[in-house]
Nucleic acid binder design. Structure first.
Lengths: 209, 209
DNA sequence: GACAAATAACTGACTGGTCAGTTATTAAAC
DNA sequence: GTTTAATAACTGACCAGTCAGTTATTTGTC
């Protein structure tokens, strides 16, 4: 493999190794994944991996970190920029299928789930930096729409979980069962139904004005 | 450890080992779990485990099998015995919190998720024997209620997934994050909200009288 | 532009430790 | 005394991490 001399080239190599590691961890789980296989997947030798990462644990840590931030931002943007609850749900219905099918989030989810007990600190920080913030964003969205008289929500924090649940489920499905699906699930319709359901479920009993 | 002579005693020993294996697999993942630790947890030595199970893989297989069937039955009963959609959702709201907090389903879910790629055949059979049957049961429930004019469902198969989503999410939460929760989630209220939401979302536009 | 010296990216054989599975031995139960 | 459940010492495969050596690339000199 051609050598990486400049900082840019080295950065590219790091990213290459992280991508290889994600796939390897996704396919075998953290413990069963071999450093040699990660190296081979990146068309490098095992020794080279250790020039870029301290240890297998460190590689895992860095992998989770690099994936968490951009994904968080995608999701937060979706809830913040929407002008209304209905618009936000429509945005979710549009972007959720993409997020599930075209990003690596589902791989991250599987890996983090499977080895959560080996890395309690990573789980804790992922929860704090990603999960809790997403839930907070959706809760705020619900609360604001409620205050504006658009919808009626008694328990915004719990309702936020109900809003998010189909995404979690679909991601898990994508990671575990989708490879064996003959016909893929129609995620577009699923999330349109979900948006429609939430709208009806939370509609104010009396129309306001 | 006192010796197991009768068939009953041996059966008890098998169950003891399966329980120990579940906890060990749950806490470390399949690959990282050690046969010696499973044995110690059951107050036996490693060699003894091999008197009851062929191999680590076989132990895993049998574990999944013994857990799948009773759980399936619990869930199927819930949907079948309900006289109406509303009653079924009420039953789910009552039993889901128990199912999540008091059974081992969440452990099974974590283990199966984390090592799904190592056991494609187990995943396939689990899907066929449990997941697909649960989804079919909920789909039938929705279809029947629709045909009876109780609710209005355009896409029963997809809507079934939306009904089930909060359970999947809560189980995943139970497996991954619950141990670090300061205040546990109020599952009773969560599922009451969910039942209420689904009822409103699927209510017929015109009251059928 | 040609050549050599210096640099550092890369390699893969090796080591030390771990762990699944085996087996010779012990001793409990009858 | 016979049977067999249980044990613990053992073996061999496997793999994370190391490091001495290799070689692509750059830099300096003419």
């Amino acid at each position: 493999m051609k050598r990486a001399r400049s900082d840019d080239e080295k950065d590219a190599r790091r990213r290459l190794l992280l991508a290889a590691a994600l796939d390897e961890f996704f396919e075998r789980g953290f413990s069963a994944a071999r450093m040699a296989d990660i190296a081979t997947r990146a068309e490098l030798s095992k020794g080279t991996v250790y020039l870029y990462f301290e240890s297998k644990d460190e590689l895992f840590r860095e992998l989770i970190e690099t994936l968490a931030v951009p994904n968080l931002e995608t999701i937060e943007r979706m809830t913040r920029t929407a002008p209304s609850f209905e618009a936000a749900m429509a945005a979710i219905a549009t972007f959720a299928p993409q997020l599930i099918r075209e990003t690596h989030l589902h791989k991250l989810m599987k890996v983090l789930t499977g080895d959560s007990h080996s890395f309690p600190d990573i789980v804790a920080s992922y929860r704090r930096d990603v999960i809790d913030r997403v839930l907070a964003a959706v809760t705020a969205l619900l609360q604001n729409a409620h205050d504006a008289g658009e919808i009626s929500v008694a328990e915004p924090a719990l309702t936020a979980r109900l809003v998010v649940a189909p995404m979690i489920m679909s991601m898990l499905w994508q990671a575990v069962f989708a490879p064996t699906d003959r016909v893929p699930i129609d995620l577009e319709t699923l999330f349109q139904l979900h948006a429609e359901n939430m709208k009806r479920a939370l509609a104010c009993p009396e129309p306001a004005s």
